[in-house]
C-alpha cells in the first residue's frame, strides 16, 4: 500500500482493468502520448500499446458515439472528456443511444462503456472548465452516474464502473485530483456501485453530499462536533440509481437532513433526494430539509470562484439551524 492521490488511483484502476480484460480500451483527446490533460492516463500507452490507448481527433460527438459502437461490438471503452463543459455532445449519444441500446434491442446489443470527465470548480480554470451538471446525466434512463470523493473510492468505483455491463458516467472532482493522499491497495477489489457510503457516524443531523463537497462537509462535521453537534456524513457516490435506503436509514436515526452540492440549486440532484425523503421519511423529520448548494448562476471566473463554492461555514450554519429547529 502507498499513499496516492485520487488521480493516481484512477490510473491504477484503469491499468488494473486493462490488465485483467483485454477488451478494455482507453480513448479520448490527448490521453495517449500526453497521458491526459490531468495525466490520469499517464503511462498506459507505454504499458498497453497504441491499439488500446487511443488519441482521437478533437470531436466529442465522435468520441461518444465511437464508444457506443465499440461497446456494442464487445469492447469496454473508457472515454475521457477533458472537462465537463466539453462533454455535452456526449449527452446526445448517452440519451439517444448508449442508455437505450440494451433496451431497444431487447438485450441483443449492450453498451458497457465508461465516460470519464473532470467536474466542478475550484482550480482557477478558464470558462467552461468548472461545471457541475451531474443532474443532467442522472436524469437519463439506463445510465449509472458515479462520483468518487477519495483516492480509495476513486480506485474501487472506477474498477466497478469499467466492469459494469451498462454505461457509466464517471465524474471526477477536479478539486480533489491532487488535494489529498490516501493509502490505496492495488488489489483489484472494486467497491459496490448503487450504494452510498456513510463516512462518519452521527446522531443529530445527516449531511448528504458527493464529490468535491465531501471535503468541506467532513470539515463542517468536525466543526459541528466541537460545538457538541454529532453529524452523520453520507457520500452518495452513485447518484443514479440512487441508494435511498441508506439515506432514509440515516434520517430515521438523526431526524434532520442537510443536502450539500456544488451544482446549481434549482433542479439540482438535492431536490430529488429531498423529495425521496419527503415521500418515504417525512415522519422521521424533525426539521425542514436544508440545502446548501451552488447558486443558480453561471460558475464565475476565478476571481469570484471562492464566493460561489458552498463553504464549510454555510454547511455548519445550515446544520445548526436544522438542529435548532424545534
Amino acid at each position: 500500500m502507498s499513499e496516492i492521490t485520487l488521480l493516481s488511483a484512477l490510473t491504477l484502476a484503469m491499468a488494473r482493468a486493462m490488465e485483467e480484460d483485454e477488451n478494455v480500451v482507453i480513448l479520448g483527446q490527448d490521453v495517449a502520448v500526453n497521458g491526459g490533460v490531468f495525466r490520469a492516463t499517464e503511462g498506459l500507452l507505454e504499458r498497453f500499446g497504441n491499439e488500446r490507448v487511443l488519441d482521437t481527433p478533437l470531436a466529442e460527438t465522435m468520441i461518444a458515439g465511437m464508444a457506443v459502437g465499440m461497446a456494442a461490438e464487445g469492447l469496454r471503452p473508457v472515454a475521457e472528456f477533458q472537462f465537463m463543459g466539453f462533454s455535452y455532445p456526449a449527452i446526445d449519444q448517452l440519451l439517444n443511444h448508449g442508455g437505450r441500446l440494451r433496451n431497444r434491442s431487447r438485450g441483443r446489443l449492450t453498451c458497457p462503456l465508461v465516460f470519464r470527465t473532470p467536474m466542478g470548480a475550484g482550480i482557477h480554470a478558464p470558462e467552461h472548465h468548472s461545471d457541475s451538471t451531474e443532474v443532467m446525466f442522472a436524469h437519463i434512463p439506463g445510465l449509472r452516474v458515479v462520483i468518487p470523493s477519495s483516492p480509495a473510492r476513486a480506485y474501487g468505483l472506477l474498477l466497478a464502473s469499467i466492469r459494469d455491463p451498462d454505461p457509466v458516467v464517471f465524474l471526477e472532482p477536479t478539486r480533489l485530483y491532487r488535494a489529498l493522499r490516501e493509502d490505496v491497495a492495488d488489489d483489484g477489489e472494486a467497491l459496490p456501485l448503487d450504494t452510498c457510503f456513510t463516512l462518519r457516524q452521527g446522531s443529530d443531523v445527516t449531511l448528504v453530499t458527493w464529490g468535491a463537497m465531501v471535503k468541506e462537509t467532513l470539515a463542517a462535521a468536525d466543526s459541528l462536533e466541537a460545538d457538541g453537534i454529532s453529524a452523520e456524513v453520507v457520500d452518495v457516490a452513485t447518484l443514479k440509481p440512487l441508494d435511498t435506503e441508506t439515506i432514509l436509514a440515516s434520517v430515521e436515526k438523526t431526524g434532520r437532513l442537510v443536502i450539500i452540492h456544488e451544482a446549481a440549486k434549482t433542479g439540482g440532484f438535492g431536490g430529488e433526494i429531498a423529495a425521496q425523503v419527503a415521500e418515504h421519511g417525512l415522519l422521521h423529520l424533525q426539521a425542514p430539509i436544508g440545502r446548501v448548494c451552488g447558486y443558480d448562476v453561471v460558475p464565475p471566473l476565478p476571481k469570484l470562484e471562492d464566493a460561489f463554492l458552498p463553504s464549510e461555514a454555510r454547511i455548519v450554519e445550515a446544520a445548526e439551524s436544522a438542529v435548532a429547529f424545534a
Binding site: G65, M66, A67, G69, A72, G74, P77
Partner: peptide
Amino acid sequence: AVHAVGVASA
C-alpha cells in the same frame, strides 16, 4: 455514423 466508426475501430 459515429457508431459505425466505433464498430469499425473494434
